[in-house]
């Protein structure tokens, strides 16, 4: 019975510690609000909120609190992909690495992938966005968020993101690179006061959706 005494004693400690950390995480997750007022800046007509940090593969990360970050795709990526019909996200509990392909999007039988801007354990998935992929285009920085990630070392991984002072330049370069492929797009942007059209890909006849997204999303 000594065996049971020892195992049960240590199991009690381990379970208490585990439940306490789960509960703390659950409280933290529940207390975060996806929609918040972000200070919006525009680069070539695309919204680029200043509070967010960006991965060069056009995903963003928002530090909700210590070790808890929200993740999504930026407006440029959402507009470039346009009318996606379905997407796949990693399940809660899965550990994702920075730069790992974790998002899959589908359009007309083609697949596009995007990478994680951070490293950590997925704690929540935006099921609303899964049900209604159009949210990504409507509100990529609000209701179109994709994951909540528990990132134990969010400071270290943030070093690999686009430096804050270079975000405008980085986004401008991406937009110009896209417009070089189809100059008509620049005109389409200007038509309604500088905002991009809903579906940029639709204005790029002859392009492969998968190849185009691979180039811009670094996949």
């Amino acid at each position: 019975m000594t065996v049971l005494l020892v195992l049960l004693t240590f199991l009690t400690f381990i379970v208490i510690d585990y439940l306490m950390s789960r509960r703390r995480l659950a409280v933290e997750v529940a207390s975060t609000q996806p929609a918040r007022d972000l200070e919006v800046a525009f680069v070539e007509g695309f919204r680029v909120p200043r509070e967010l940090r960006y991965h060069p593969g056009h995903t963003w990360v928002l530090r909700e609190r210590k070790n808890l970050v929200r993740v999504g795709i930026d407006e440029f990526a959402a507009a470039l992909m346009g009318k996606i019909t379905r997407m796949e996200l990693p399940r809660p509990g899965l550990w994702v690495r920075q730069g790992q392909k974790i998002f899959s999007f589908y359009r007309d039988g083609e697949k596009a992938e995007m990478v994680s801007p951070t490293e950590g354990e997925v704690v929540e998935v935006n099921t609303e966005a899964l049900k209604e992929p159009a949210l990504l285009r409507k509100d990529p920085y609000g209701s179109g968020w994709l994951l909540l990630i528990h990132a134990p070392d969010d400071e270290t991984v943030s070093r690999n993101l686009v430096p804050r002072q270079l975000v405008r330049e980085w986004m401008r370069e991406a937009v110009e690179r896209l417009y070089l492929r189809q100059p008509r797009l620049a005109g389409a942007v200007a038509a309604d006061g500088g905002r991009p059209v809903e579906d940029l890909f639709a204005a790029l006849p002859g392009e492969s959706w998968t190849k185009l997204t691979q180039e811009f999303f670094l996949t």
Partner: peptide, 10 residues
Amino acid sequence: SKAFGHQLEL
């Protein structure tokens, strides 16, 4: 990883 906020070397 939990106690010191280090990355888990998964």
